[in-house]
Design a protein around this nucleic acid. Structure first.
Lengths: 191, 191
DNA sequence: TGGTAATTGTGTCAATTGACACAAAATTAA
DNA sequence: TTAATTTTGTGTCAATTGACACAATTACCA
């Protein structure tokens, strides 16, 4: 749980007692490569925190093509938020691209935490605000940066993803085709 | 304040007393067309709720081109979230595309609300969660839909924006150039 | 370990797109 | 109300991109 403890710590001080309460609501789990964390028709009853490995969150459209919504990297909270908060069945899928170890917080425990004491409730609210802020930054970066810039950003800030995730999936993650990403790689290699 | 009251109501029941506390933290304001709500170098100390009119949230890149981050429509909470939550100066701009009327919640009042009582604190947390969920839905839709589909979506769900916002800005909002949007419009008109 | 499946590199080609240019129309300001 | 400014419509053209195809390589499973 050390990773999750460190993750929480970046959002402010918390007494060891409260940190324990927080961490005791999290259960560790793991997935083999190819195993599904959430699949179509599932109800989404947990929030996940990826410790190691990569997840592929995607949707299959009516036209039959697969649309990558996100490649989830380590040290990241992820769930299908609308389905989790509003208790819906999903039509999307989330599958392990590599071996994955994660922490899981069930809805019931998440809700209990918000009721446990004021400090924890307020702390979780801060974490929610920071995740919201991060989502907007990610969305804005997608608007601001070109595909090539996003690939260079990955090279610099997430080389592990490039090493462990198939290029086709990285391509869709940054919003282009496998072939175009290949052109970018060739161009960068030449420079 | 009726719009804001209705907006809040969709997230759950609230006693009239608590609703009053909530609404009394909001001050109404307005902008003339072309007036800036937030500009480069500003500190961002408020959250805004647009009642009427449209805002243009954009950034100017080093290369000298303007990048639209969002066109904000009525009935929508908006601020520069990272700057607001983390007390930073911004490099971006938010300007009124039309006459705009809005409600404003200052950081100080927002923080006071979170301390006022448990019901309100918990209610605001729910609103934050729903806004987070909405942001992710918006981001996912941007991945799933083509430019043409997003334009049709606007036609169906936000005709007012099409009527009141220049096509060049709508084009950048849905992620394309003015010329390509014009081609789409011509094609749709022919069909 | 050998065979199968998946992934990658790469070329060609058609379609889409963005950049540029400029006249027409509409909006704004003096 | 007129002049100046902004926005819009539209054509051409070059560059980028995606689709397809397939051989080479790598990864996986029995």
């Amino acid at each position: 749980m050390q990773m999750l403890r460190d993750y929480f710590s970046q959002f402010g001080e918390l007494s060891e007692e409260n940190m324990q309460i927080l961490l005791s609501s999290c259960k560790r789990g793991s997935l083999a490569k190819g195993e599904e964390l959430v699949q179509a028709n599932d109800w989404v009853d947990s929030i996940y925190f990826v410790e190691e490995g990569f997840l592929h969150y995607y949707t299959d459209t009516e036209n039959g093509d697969r649309c990558t919504l996100k490649v989830v990297s380590p040290n990241y909270f992820w769930t299908m938020l609308d389905e989790f908060f509003n208790q819906k069945q999903t039509i999307d899928t989330c599958v392990a691209l590599t071996e994955v170890s994660f922490c899981e917080i069930k809805r019931q425990d998440y809700n209990a935490l918000k009721e446990s004491n004021k400090t924890i409730a307020s702390f979780i609210h801060s974490v929610t605000e920071q995740i919201l802020s991060l989502k907007v930054i990610e969305a804005n970066n997608k608007s601001k940066m070109t595909v090539e810039e996003r690939y260079i950003d990955l090279l610099e800030n997430n080389p592990q993803m490039i090493q462990e995730v198939p290029v086709g999936i990285i391509a869709s993650h940054i919003g282009t085709s496998r072939e175009t990403l290949h052109r970018i790689r060739k161009k960068l290699a030449a420079a």
